[in-house]
Amino acid sequence: MTTRQITFREAINDALRQEMRRDPTVIVMGEDVAGGASLEHIEGRQEEAWGGVLGVTKGLVQEFGRARVLDTPISESGYIGAAVGAAATGLRPVAELMFVDFFGVCMDQIYNQGAKLRYMFGGKATVPMVVRTMIGAGFRAAGQHSGSHYSVFTHMPGLKTVVPSTPADAKGLLAAAIRDNDPVIFFEHKLLYDVEGPVPDGEYVIPLGQADVKRVGDDVTVVAIGRMVPLALAAAEDLAKTHGIGVEVVDPRTLSPLDAPTILNSVRKTHRLVVVDEDNPRCSVAADLVALVASEALEYLDEAPKMVTAPHAVVPFSPVLEDLYVPSAERIGHVIRTLMGHEIGV
């Protein structure tokens, strides 16, 4: 398969295009996803339409038209609920919730409707929809535009949750999410949008529920999520050079369903676990992974598992505080060295 070097943003756009070409029932809806394309003065000059606040859906309205790339009013309950209703009646909507923090205004439609419909109806409904949403701190956007919150959704039966860390994964996993017959929440870290990587040309789909070992190592398993994956890899490269520590980096890629065997097999090999997660730590995916390993593979562990996460706090505005909030490669490296008993004398 030939690859192209493109950004995470372009990879998502690629997947949307690929699936919209393949299946006429796929529609994209959300605030500014076309972006000004409904304005008369921009008609015929649609290349000037925003295509999402950060340009992820740019160009889709030109190719697929306004009937399939729908700008919505700022009515998250209304249009995300409409995506649920449309999914239950024959479309495959991809609704964009601009920032995940906005789940506060539409969670009823996501959870009480989208996630529960199939079960409550005795399996007689399917809700094949995707909610794409931006996550992550580091944008100096403060408390209501910077959360991660995938733990909240992973907790909920009926939802699937996907957090890609590379452009190629973003393309393959989004394609799978759109083809999936269950509601999927797809989390895109805004600081990854400009990251480039090799992405397969043409049709590319990665099944949900398959973790990826991003780096092989024998001494410690680091399970990292989303943007924490490149940071964990940077820490791992550094530790290999400076301390000769072999770090295995496992990227779960989908949090629900979770590929537990890949994580457990890695821990059984390395005997040590560090979980790196930008979400808040209480009742989180990080805590869940530590519980998984403690209950399934405790006898393999040489050391108590460690979590490197954001604190139990709101994302702050001040750059100094925000940088302190997000786990860094340095912090990850420090925790690994401590776990390996290398900290003394460093």
Binding site: T25, A82, G85, A86, L91, D108, Q109, N112, Q113
Partner: peptide, 25 residues
């Protein structure tokens, strides 16, 4: 019949979605 609803007002957006399907298709 897309369901009774335990959430008061929960069905409004769902109806819009079903209408959107009819129009789109």
């Amino acid at each position: 019949m897309l369901g009774a609803n335990g959430i008061v007002g929960g069905g409004g957006p769902l109806a819009v979605g079903a209408g959107l399907t009819l129009k789109t298709l």
